[in-house]
Design a protein around this nucleic acid. Structure first.
Length: 949
RNA sequence: AGGACUAUAGCUCAGUUGGUUAGAGCGCUACCUUGACAUGGUAGAGGUCCCCAGUUCGAAUCUGGGUAGUCCUACCA
């Protein structure tokens, strides 16, 4: 092995070998265990969140592979309709070409081209991360197989009456020219205005106050062009007499009725509300109740139409109805029209006042522009029906969220679920399998031929629906469509339901909930009951930057996991973060922040260190602030492992490690580390079962560094370097040294695949193992018979003495090189036995010349530490300042005295003694006794120093 | 408006069913280049567990209230 740990030189080598040897392919043996990767957007690249989730998935997959499961990790990427289309359009825009210039087919060809080029980025990143996904089964959501599933699901849902088409208000994105679902709308708090407009009463009517107008308040004055009524509360005394009367709508000269509806809040503004059913969701509902006219005044750009279009609620145009729009507003953008309309009201003295107003503005999550409620024909999924079983599955525990509290989030959304608008006016995506004849009648089928055949259409002209489906409609089928549904269900039987869905809380609604609904509708258990897509949902926190900010490209604080693995200079990092920005103005700020946060860029850490860092952060909380210091620490940990392995090899290679039998004598240290190892194995299994990757990492770190390296390796040295060691003793320690390391490599492999493979291959033979890769080895199982409590407490005693001596050295500034004589006094028979058994360990690790047992003999002037009741004495003879030692002892005495008083106080409380469990009382009593003994013994020692000194 | 979550060492975080002297890493202090490792070793300093009240023999942990912060959902023109 090389002297230094260089991750880059081992990582690519092993990944390539795993892939070439098809180690990621399901074994075909054992119970099925599968995870379907949340498919990343094909045109993007993986960020820290992906690295985090994929590390967890890979750890689970590798663990289950090693515990004998038939394991499949299904990879793939998502076509991400809007996002991808935008990326490609932006690319085209740099050449001055729009998608309309190209036409639909040519544009889609361009997208495929881009996908081909960019899709490799993600798969390359996944390989670098060590993901053991089954590449042979990789799926892209626009692949023919997946597309076929999408069509099949659409057709079946349509036939089941769960998909319908209708003209309704939708969230319209006037920039992207498509409908989007509720979930894709982000509500932003914003400061705006409340315009108070006067609407003159018709036919000479007057208000209770004698005014000849009503005042309505609005945040969107331009919508008045489409007003259909003014509403008041039915019990509002101010307007009782006006209900059923009319107002003359200014500018457009239409009469609109005054209606009563208890939706109106009497206390807000004037208590009068203008109703625009075609441009507001609440108004739409009210309009429906009162059969008001639906007057659309905007086009797909959210610019004002030449004339209002009046619809009925069944979506048909009312050709006779008239909603004229004055020419000065026609064709003007909504915000432009707003200004013009406000000033028109002002010049007509119809603008009462303008108030500042805080409001919530809906914006498209992709485009960022203000969403317009707009009347269009769209396809919907009746979500309520599908939601029923999906809710029940979680209620019944067929699906469990980890952590559990996310179930509430899920329930609250599912129980109030709205119909899902699934059509998108895009070109990139799964085109809706619906055809229209010349009368506009719709036919749904898998293909045009099927539609014609099923409906006896002969050679009637049919036109396919232009729209595509919401990307999430397709990804909702992910768990079963990737397994070959509907053509071949062999793999569905083998791998479905998947074991766990590892994802972020931000897509519980988008994806998790919809997967559950769709899967349960289409996939059934043998007994005919709906089958869930996965049994667990492991919800991870979001990875935030070092300040706790969400990572985003526009903030310039994203981290590319590969940069952490390979390292990157500050200049390169700055360049990366400031390139291709939507708002180049921010570049200077980003550069400054970056230089400030990472003045040295990143040094190479390797995949294993990154993965270990990510798992150690995987607590069951919400947010994770990514602290680069943690990564540094775990890179050092990898280095520690590397060097420990070097030590092990140096002392085992070319020696007899008992691979071929032979007598073996185990030292106390050997028995101790073996015992500790069994407990570690138990712990790791437990943490996997409970998804506590943080505790698992911590347990491994703790064991490897603080037990194996700090103590066990050090304790092996006295055996190896003692010329009196027997062949059996040497063999025993070599064997333990190598075998414990070998087990540790298997235990750590799911988290740190590369370094464990590298080391495992070098020590395999010495450890008496065979096989081509650690990946296919059995995961360690604890052997309870090897737990040795006696060895553990003996070794604790040994450590206690050594630490006691080191403490005296440290506190008294005795040079580490200086050999000491140590005396043990006031001990019991057990202490004597332990001393005799472990003299070599003590001498070597505490750097002692000798250890002397004092029966009743008087001790010389000494510094003292206690191990239980036994005194560990370091004779002072010129080494130690008496006063200093007395002071040090006094501090210890004070501490113990405090402890003693605290506990005796507790014990003298009758309530405590009578009500607390006997074991607790006993334990407290023991603690009190120990503290008392400490005080007495140390006090005695202080007196002794006074007497002798 | 409703709901969820968070608050523990200078920083980033653990702390299971109430019983610890409240832990880890990083950082800090002192000492140490001994033959796995200075990406290291040894020893150490550092905490009003956000505040108040309650339950209990006993509260970082349970309950109620408050403060601060984060997030989700909904939204009155």
């Amino acid at each position: 092995m090389d002297k230094t740990y260089t991750p880059q030189s081992i990582e690519s080598r092993h990944y390539q070998s795993w892939e070439e040897n098809q180690r990621f392919t399901p074994s075909g043996v054992g119970p099925g265990y599968s995870i379907m990767i949340p498919p990343p957007n094909v045109t993007g690249s993986l960020h820290m969140g992906h690295a985090f989730q994929q590390t967890i998935m890979d750890a689970l997959i590798r663990y289950h592979r090693m515990t004998g499961h038939n394991t499949l990790w299904q990879p793939g990427t998502d076509h991400a309709g809007i996002a991808t289309q935008m990326v490609v359009e932006r690319l085209l825009a740099t050449e001055g070409v729009s998608r309309h210039d190209l036409g639909r087919e040519a544009f889609i060809d361009k997208v495929w081209e881009w996908k081909k080029q960019s899709g490799g980025t993600i798969t390359q990143q996944m390989r670098r991360l060590g993901d053991s996904v089954d590449w042979e089964r990789e799926v892209f959501t626009m692949d023919p197989g997946h597309s076929e599933s999408v069509t099949e699901v659409f057709v079946r849902l349509y036939n089941d009456g769960l998909i319908y088409r209708g003209k309704r208000l939708v969230n319209w994105d006037p920039k992207l020219h498509t409908a989007i679902s509720d979930l894709e709308v982000e509500n932003h708090d914003d400061k705006g205005f409340l315009w108070h407009l006067k609407y003159p009463l018709a036919d000479g009517a007057k208000t209770a106050d004698g005014l000849d107008y009503l005042v309505v308040a609005t945040t969107r004055p331009e919508t008045m062009l489409g007003d259909a009524a003014v509403a008041v509360h039915p019990e509002d005394p101010r307007y009782q007499s006006l209900i059923g009367q009319w107002v003359d709508l200014p500018l457009v000269n239409r009469r609109i009725p005054i209606i009563a509806d208890d939706y109106v809040d009497q206390d807000f503004g004037t208590g009068c509300v203008k109703i625009t059913p075609a441009h507001d969701f609440n108004d739409y509902e009210m309009g429906k109740r009162h059969q008001l006219q639906l007057i659309n005044i905007l086009d797909h750009n959210a610019a004002v139409l030449p004339a209002g279009q009046v619809f009925h609620y069944d979506g048909t145009l009312l050709p006779d109805a008239d909603a004229p729009i004055p020419s000065e507003y026609q064709g003007r953008d909504r915000f432009d029209a707003r200004k013009a309309i406000v000033s028109a009201f002002e010049s007509l003295s119809l603008l009462e006042r303008i108030d500042d107003h805080k409001l919530v503005v809906p914006k498209g999550d992709r485009s960022g522009v203000v969403i317009e409620p707009w009347l269009t024909d769209q396809w919907y999924v009746s979500a309520k029906t599908l939601a029923g079983p999906a809710i029940k599955a979680v209620e019944d525990g067929d699906i469990e969220f980890v952590p559990k509290q996310w179930e509430n989030t899920y329930f609250s959304w599912m129980r109030d679920i709205q119909d899902w608008c699934i059509s998108r006016q895009l070109w990139w995506g799964h085109q809706i399998p619906a055809w229209y004849d010349e009368t506009g009648k719709v036919y749904v089928g898998r293909t045009e031929a099927e539609v014609r055949a099923n409906n006896n259409l002969g050679d009637v002209t049919l036109k396919r629906d232009d729209d595509v489906l919401d990307t999430w409609f397709s990804s909702a089928l992910w768990t079963f469509s990737t397994l070959g549904w509907p053509d071949d269900e062999t793999l569905v039987k083998m791998f479905h339901p998947s074991a766990v869905c590892v994802t972020g809380f931000d897509i519980i609604f988008f994806w998790v909930a919809r997967m559950i609904m769709m899967t349960m509708h289409f996939i059934k258990n043998d007994d005919g009951t709906p089958q869930v897509p996965f049994k667990k949902v492991y919800v991870t926190g979001l990875i935030r930057d070092e300040q706790g900010q969400k990572m985003s490209k526009s903030k310039g604080n994203v981290l590319d996991p590969i940069d952490l693995i390979d390292g990157i200079t500050l200049d390169e990092l700055v360049a990366k973060r400031t390139s291709g920005m939507m708002q180049p103005k921010l570049a200077a700020k980003i550069e400054k922040n970056t230089r400030n946060a990472f003045p040295d860029g990143f040094t190479e850490s390797g995949t294993d260190a990154l993965r270990f860092t990510l798992t150690s952060l995987a607590t069951l909380g919400r947010d994770i602030k990514f602290d680069i210091k943690r990564l540094d620490g775990y890179r050092n940990f990898c280095n520690k492992i590397w060097n420990a392995a070097r030590y092990v090899l140096q002392n085992t290679e070319g020696h007899d490690c008992g691979q071929n039998g032979g007598d073996v004598t185990l030292s106390l240290a050997d028995r101790w580390i073996i015992s500790r190892l069994q407990k570690l194995e138990q712990e790791v299994h437990k943490h996997f079962a409970q998804y506590r990757f943080d505790l698992m990492s911590q347990a491994l770190y703790e064991f490897i560094w603080n037990e194996y390296c700090d103590w066990y390796i050090e304790l092996s040295k006295p055996v190896f370097w003692n010329e009196n060691s027997s062949e059996a003793q040497l063999r025993g320690t070599r064997q333990t040294l190598i075998r414990v390391l070998e087990v540790l490599m298997r235990l750590a492999h799911p988290i740190m695949p590369y370094i464990t493979e590298e080391i495992w291959l070098s020590i395999r033979d010495l450890a008496g193992k065979s096989g081509d890769s650690i990946m296919t080895q059995k995961f360690p199982e604890a052997d309870a018979s090897r737990i040795d409590e006696a060895a553990e407490s003996d070794l604790e005693w040994v450590k206690g003495v050594i630490i006691g001596v080191r403490n005296i050295r440290g506190e008294m500034n005795i040079p580490p090189k200086k050999s000491l004589t140590v005396m043990l006094q006031n001990g019991e028979a057990e202490d004597l036995r332990r001393m005799n058994d472990n003299a070599e360990f003590l001498k070597k690790l505490a750097k002692l010349d000798e250890v002397v047992w004092l029966d009743n003999a008087e001790a010389p002037l000494s510094a003292t530490q206690l191990v239980g009741s036994m005194k560990v004495l370091v004779p002072m003879a010129g080494l130690i300042d008496v006063a200093a030692e007395q002071q040090r002892l006094q501090r210890e005495i004070d501490k113990a005295q405090q402890e003693y008083s605290r506990i005796t106080g507790k014990l003298s409380n009758e309530q405590f003694v009578s009500k607390a469990p006997a074991a607790v009382v006993q334990q407290e009593q023991a603690k009190a006794d120990a503290a008392k003994l400490t005080v007495e013994t140390l006090q005695q020692q202080v007196d002794e120093l006074t007497r002798l000194g």
